[in-house]
């Protein structure tokens, strides 16, 4: 099979380019540790409270150390449970100081959901039977909308909350 000289250049450059892309991605993933969410922990979807993180009192934001937080979320059709405030009302908005490290843990008792703080790199699938987790450093102040981005039923677009990263 004959290849034109220029086609050899083109395919050569293309293949080298793709390899360079892969090396950059691989370096970011396996050396710097920025993987997409791939947590493997399982949970009984009909008994999520068996896992401490998803007991009603542990839902929402908890400060564990200076600049370190855990955010436990239960996604269900059609609501994000971010815990309750002192008066018992459901929390919809969360505030975190800029520069904090946050471990987000989420699961669902029903169907598949998406969990995305729009505009951040916190974006993961939430599936029955699994705990999804992601740890990120929030450096850019601003308001980020929490949206369900995987179709979960007719009220899918009514699942939301917000995250404020404050100076």
């Amino acid at each position: 099979m004959h290849l034109h000289k220029y086609e050899k250049y083109w395919l050569g450059a293309g293949i080298v380019g793709l390899i360079v892309f892969l090396i950059i991605l691989g370096f970011g993933a396996f050396y710097l540790g920025t993987h997409p969410q791939s947590h493997g922990e399982i949970i009984d979807p009909e008994n999520i409270e068996a896992n401490d993180a998803f007991k009603p009192e542990n839902r929402g934001l908890t400060k564990v150390d200076e600049g370190r937080y855990v955010l436990n979320i239960v996604a269900s059709a059609f609501n994000y449970d971010l815990g309750t405030d002192e008066s018992g009302a459901p929390i919809k908005n969360i505030e975190i100081p800029a520069g904090s490290k946050v471990l987000v843990q989420a699961t669902t008792p029903d169907v598949i959901h998406g969990l995305n703080f729009a505009g951040t790199n916190i974006n993961m699938m939430v599936e029955p039977g699994y705990v999804s987790t992601m740890e990120v450093e929030l450096n850019n102040p601003g308001e980020y909308t929490l949206v369900c981005n995987e179709y979960c039923g007719v009220g899918h677009h009514l699942m939301y909350g917000s995250l404020e990263v404050v100076e």
């Binding site: 920025t34 997409p36 981005n149």
Partner: peptide, 11 residues
């Protein structure tokens, strides 16, 4: 692109 997908996934 692996981790970059997180930025656009399901948007």
């Amino acid at each position: 692109s692996y981790q970059i997908n997180t930025m656009v996934h399901n948007t």
